[in-house]
Design a protein around this nucleic acid. Structure first.
Length: 323
DNA sequence: AACACCTCCAACCGCAGTAAT
DNA sequence: GATTACTGCGGTTGGAGGTGT
């Protein structure tokens, strides 16, 4: 299903390698070295395509490959490198001796990503989902009614829980000329400097705390957001909104009825709204998948929807406050 | 025991970049 | 400069093995 054979047409074998094939390949490479992958299998007497041989060698047979479980130090290194390099698995592998890009990629997708999700951290942007939620909520309110004096955190009784710098940042944004509702106003996908991976701060690691991470990300947001005065439409488009001024965004951000209530917060699907496709190598710039209200299936099991909103609701929280 | 579902990872595919012609 | 061949990379898949019912 989905995959068309690359070797069958030439009568070449595909699928798992046998011990004999491994030995043949290793013997040949020991004698002649690797390279010239297209002619190698023929010369070595293997009924495999060159690509398959190269992959087998680089991912499994190479003598310098370290196998076995990843250490906590390696975990941290991968997270840190990923926050800087993104899905550049080969670049990450180059900094982790003995590990292959394929191995790291698999490990990321099966372990680390889930670990970060459980911590409420977006594995693509390495930004706390709580900060993103707050930012988007604030922006959404301002866009819906730009003249409105914002005090969302106060309104919700969340002031003490939200980083004030982030709120100020969001307010600053709203006070600037927001032109994002005009399609085509942004030139490039990566113009949203806030997600430039080269500027992502040290990510959370297994030994860090979420609070420290929030502070780091707030500083990052502030530094980056100072550089622009409009919100790219593609951010909204990525989540299925074509027009940033569309009230539906606000409705989404504020819950299905346009009101914040405890129940709405839990159910409004921010996890999907704010998530990015797991396979995206360009944070928040995916063009292929729209995530709205749980429309996507992947990793919704581990959705931030539950994780990111794991915070204490103050006793005086008014669950029926409308925006 | 049998079946269904889930997790993990080796291997595959397609694309992009580079080198050779 | 255009075309072809080769290589490397990142995303995705299939299936084995594990776990739950």
């Amino acid at each position: 299903m989905g995959k068309s054979p690359c070797c069958d047409k030439n009568g070449l074998k595909k699928g798992p390698w046998t011990a004999e094939e491994d030995q043949t390949l290793m013997d040949y490479i020991q004698k002649h070295g690797h390279g010239r992958w297209r002619t190698l299998p023929k010369n070595a007497g293997l009924k495999r395509c060159g690509k398959s041989c190269r992959l087998r060698w680089t991912n499994y047979l190479r003598p310098d490959i370290k196998r076995g479980k990843f250490s906590p130090e390696e975990d941290d290194a991968i997270i840190q490198l990923h926050s800087v390099l993104g899905n550049k698995w080969s670049a990450i592998a180059a900094r982790l001796p003995g590990r292959t890009d394929n191995e790291i990629k698999n490990y990321w997708n099966t372990h680390i990503k889930k670990k970060l999700l459980r911590m409420g951290i977006d594995p693509v942007t390495h930004i706390s989902r709580f900060d993103l939620l707050e930012l988007y909520s604030t922006l959404g309110s301002g866009l819906y009614n730009p003249s409105q004096q914002l005090n969302l955190a106060g309104l919700l009784g969340l002031g003490s829980m939200i980083n004030p710098e982030l709120l100020n940042l969001a307010k600053s944004l709203l006070s600037s000329n927001i032109q994002a509702s005009q399609p085509g106003n942004f030139q490039a996908q990566n113009q949203f400097p806030f997600f430039q991976t080269s500027q992502i701060q040290t990510p959370v690691t297994s030994s860090s705390t979420t609070n420290a991470y929030l502070l780091q990300n707030t500083q990052l947001l502030q530094a980056n957001l100072n550089q622009f005065s409009a919100i790219p439409t593609n951010i909204c488009q990525d989540y299925g909104y074509d027009d940033l001024s569309d009230q539906s965004i606000i409705t989404q951000l504020a819950g299905n009825q346009g009101c914040f209530s405890g129940e709405n917060i839990q159910n409004m699907g921010f996890g999907s709204l704010l998530s990015t496709p797991s396979s995206s190598s360009t944070p928040l710039n995916s063009s292929s998948t729209t995530y709205v209200n749980g429309a996507s299936t992947e990793d919704e099991r581990d959705s931030y929807g539950s994780n990111m909103l794991m915070f204490d609701v103050p006793n005086n929280f008014n669950s029926n406050v409308c925006l």
